[in-house]
């Protein structure tokens, strides 16, 4: 676990460097956000009648199509090189990669300073979570065109970083001995990656609801805004499929994160499951996303209700992080804030 043992003087410099990098990352992200906003605003709006869906496939009588779940390898229609806002989107995406690299350096520096994996308290966890959100977004962007998604993701990354440096920042470094295990690395890193994935999936699920609503004519001022946003989004089916793919990726990882936590709990506390608040909420999150995956193949639940489940699942994950850490006392309430 001990990576280095730096002398106090240089250690302070490393911590300082990590903080500076975090601030610089936020600056780059602000510029990226503006570029994403410009790109999104320039997108062609789709009129309602353009969106008549193709009839779901028909084969012989024996074959019924399930439009959604599985994975279709599709990346949507090929990106149109003349699409308005494409250039701004590209700039924003490049800046996001830059921000990701910088934040990665900041997290590593923090780990070097602390002499362990940098997930010992809420500040460090939030910092790494921001990295994971960016990482999942950029990972998805290598497989499909998600420049339209940037304007929704980058503010969430900024919010996470902002909370980390203002509210959660901490100098204290104590790590209780129970945390000093390589299961920490597996358990927590998986939980963080899942956090990034759940956040992106929850966002696309919310966007699905907006895009879905935008297919009907706008009424009041709020629905006008919803429609203005919604008509710049890809078709609802694509959004729904993207959410599904991300949850399908995250769900086994989340299961494994819980199992790794259980193995760790067994050796540290003498039981692999004890309904500690953190465990309970991890279970609740698991149940909700299991429900989401099932809902996506249940008539009457597919689409709208399922999307709400993805959002509720994300809320449960976030509550498990902030709520359980700050409101409850349990075995997971170590490391201070």
């Amino acid at each position: 676990m001990i990576l280095t043992q730096a002398s106090p003087g240089s250690a302070a410099q490393v911590a300082e460097f990590s903080n500076t990098m975090t601030y610089a990352t936020m600056l780059v992200l602000v510029v990226a956000m503006i570029a994403f906003a410009a790109s999104f605003a320039a997108r062609r709006t789709q009129s309602i009648d353009l969106r008549q869906r193709e009839p779901a496939l028909v084969g012989g009588d024996t074959v019924t199509a399930a439009p959604l779940p599985t994975g279709t390898a599709d990346a949507g229609p090929d990106p149109d090189p003349d699409e308005p806002g494409r250039r701004a989107g590209n700039i924003a995406l490049s800046l996001s990669w830059l921000a990701f690299t910088m934040l990665f350096v900041a997290v590593v520096a923090r780990g070097v300073w602390a002499g362990r994996v940098p997930w010992g308290n809420m500040y460090e966890f939030s910092l790494t979570s921001a990295l994971a959100i960016l990482g999942v977004y950029l990972g998805v962007s290598t497989r499909r065109d998600v420049r339209w998604l940037g304007i929704f993701v980058i503010p969430l990354v900024l919010l996470t970083l902002g909370l980390a440096i203002t509210v959660l920042y901490t100098e204290t470094q104590q790590l209780v001995p129970a945390l000093d295990s390589y299961w920490l690395v597996i358990h927590v890193s998986m939980a963080i990656v899942c956090g990034g994935a759940f956040l992106i999936a929850g966002t696309t699920a919310a966007l699905y609801l907006i895009a879905n609503r935008a297919q009907r004519p706008a009424g009041g001022p709020l629905s006008k805004l919803v429609c203005a946003v919604g008509r710049r989004l890809p078709e609802p089916e694509r959004l729904d499929r993207l959410s599904y793919r991300i949850v399908a990726f995250a769900f086994p990882v989340w299961t494994f994160a819980i199992v790794a936590g259980a193995i760790w709990a067994e050796s540290a506390w003498g039981r692999y499951w004890g309904w500690d608040p953190k465990e309970t909420w991890a279970f609740i999150t698991w149940v909700i996303f299991a429900g989401y995956l099932h809902a996506q193949s249940t008539a009457g639940w597919k689409g709208r209700k399922a999307s709400w489940l993805a959002i509720i699942g994300l809320v449960a994950y976030i509550f498990n992080y902030f709520g359980v850490n700050l409101l409850f006392t349990g075995l997971h309430s170590y490391g201070g804030v």
Binding site: W275, T280, I284, A290, G291, W301, A316
Partner: peptide, 25 residues
């Protein structure tokens, strides 16, 4: 549909155990 509702109900039922102190822990 019933399985789905039961699954979500299980998640819901687990909540009070995290809000109230439990004899087992």
């Amino acid at each position: 549909r019933t399985a789905l509702v039961l699954l979500l109900l299980l998640g819901l039922a687990a909540i009070p155990g995290s809000l109230l102190p439990q004899r087992t822990s």
